[in-house]
Simulated scan of single mutants.
Amino acid sequence: MDTRVAVISIIVENSDSIETLNQLLYDARDHIIGRMGIPYREKGISIISIAIDASQDIISALSGKIGRLKGVSTKTAYSNVITHTEEKHD
């Protein structure tokens, strides 16, 4: 399975979605390289950036789930850094 590096940018405008968002990120913890969160208190929003190294399908699925949360916007930027790995057959 090939993996690639990407950054998922998230803006949370509805704090009711934070618990679900955190659960989604926890579930993807094995693929997340790092996370930066900035609370913008004056505007009442949170800005989150996630660096991830995973398959295209995993990145797209995570970004899609996040984007469907109420009051949450997301954009994904993919790098051209792709790691080719051989799949293990048990």
Rank of each mutant, 00 (worst) to 15 (best):
M1V: 11
M1C: 05
M1H: 08
D2Y: 14
D2R: 05
T3G: 06
T3R: 02
V5M: 05
A6Y: 05
S9K: 02
S9E: 08
I10P: 01
I11L: 12
I11H: 05
V12W: 02
V12R: 03
V12F: 03
E13A: 08
E13L: 07
E13G: 07
N14G: 07
S15F: 10
D16N: 10
D16F: 04
S17Y: 03
I18S: 09
I18P: 08
N22D: 14
Q23K: 14
L24I: 09
L24C: 08
L24R: 06
L25C: 05
L25S: 03
Y26H: 13
D30Y: 09
D30A: 14
H31Q: 05
I33Y: 04
I33Q: 04
G34E: 02
R35S: 03
G37P: 12
G37D: 07
I38H: 08
P39F: 04
P39K: 10
R41S: 15
R41A: 15
E42W: 11
G44V: 04
I45V: 13
I45S: 08
I45N: 04
I47V: 10
I50W: 12
A51E: 15
D53F: 00
A54T: 00
Q56G: 00
Q56Y: 14
Q56E: 10
D57W: 15
I58Q: 05
I58T: 04
S60W: 03
A61T: 10
S63Q: 05
K65A: 01
K65T: 01
K65I: 00
I66W: 00
G67T: 04
L69R: 02
V72G: 09
K75E: 13
T76S: 06
T76I: 04
N80H: 12
V81D: 09
T83E: 15
T85V: 09
K88H: 13
H89R: 10
H89S: 14
